[in-house]
Design a protein around this nucleic acid. Sequence first.
DNA 1: GCCGTTTTATTAACATGTTAAATATAAGAA
DNA 2: TTCTTATATTTAACATGTTAATAAAACGGC
Lengths: 157, 157
Amino acid sequence: MTDAPKNKLAQDAFLPRNTRRSLPIALLRAREAVMSHFRPMLSAHDITEQQWRVIRLLAEQETVDASEMADKAFILAPSLTRIIRSLEERGIIAKLKDENDGRRVLLKITPAGMAIINEVAPESRLIYDRLEKQFGREKIDLLLDLLDEVSTFNEGA
Amino acid sequence: MTDAPKNKLAQDAFLPRNTRRSLPIALLRAREAVMSHFRPMLSAHDITEQQWRVIRLLAEQETVDASEMADKAFILAPSLTRIIRSLEERGIIAKLKDENDGRRVLLKITPAGMAIINEVAPESRLIYDRLEKQFGREKIDLLLDLLDEVSTFNEGA
DNA sequence: GCCGTTTTATTAACATGTTAAATATAAGAA
DNA sequence: TTCTTATATTTAACATGTTAATAAAACGGC
């Protein structure tokens, strides 16, 4: 107890918190815990988590342009380009041209895509409801509020 | 107002919540908001976020085997294999053999790696402290507690 | 000690994340 | 109109995420 270990870093004050109390890793862990409940179901329908985010937005809104999709599904443009290409090749979504702006790509769900939505959406809802029931609605709302606050205070930096 | 739009999905009850109240996306957004403060600094030191997670754990613990590293840094084994190879090639960490178990890979920081730690750790601490000050320590603690709960209730599924 | 099983790490293959650069179209100023 | 600038998307290049398969070493029963 008298000697401190020689091989420890000198300035403990500068060391980061342990991983369980590190916000970035805690967010990663929590997200993975949640997604682990959804991934097997999505995988059974041959779609990835990100592809599902794209597809389900097209269930809510007839046509969405790529920029709005990237924003709402929180997917970076280069990833979205690849996802769109893949989903289009598989006949799940269709690309349309915007008559008013030749730069934009409009996205639309196909009947095949709608079929996937109608299969996946209820299963997804069930899983989410179960999570909500186990964890508690109020706690989830509180968590969502806090997360929203974290997401929107970037300007002060 | 009399006719509902034809092209809307029939079973609204099955549709997921909007993206701002979707836990998976909310976690993703929050994480990105936090990391956006760290990424430029890490990038200036030519390391990625994941590489930093590996490096900094080696500042706390002399030697760590790959399994423990994967667990604590929350990095999947295949990703870790590549990160270790990259960091070793750059002389930032070293691989050792475990004399008691030929399967295991032990990791150790090098002097070059230690130099990086001594540069990055204080900057990282500053950024985190600023975030903590802006957001509030109690709020962060509450958030961490909630995230930890989310991360550890997997068994019930 | 032998053999089937388990564990640890790596490899393979494909999808996505990330930044920078390129391309095409639109918008605006001169 | 013409030129410059801004915006939307794509491409390129590299890093990581993700699952399945493989390889090698350890373990356990016999």
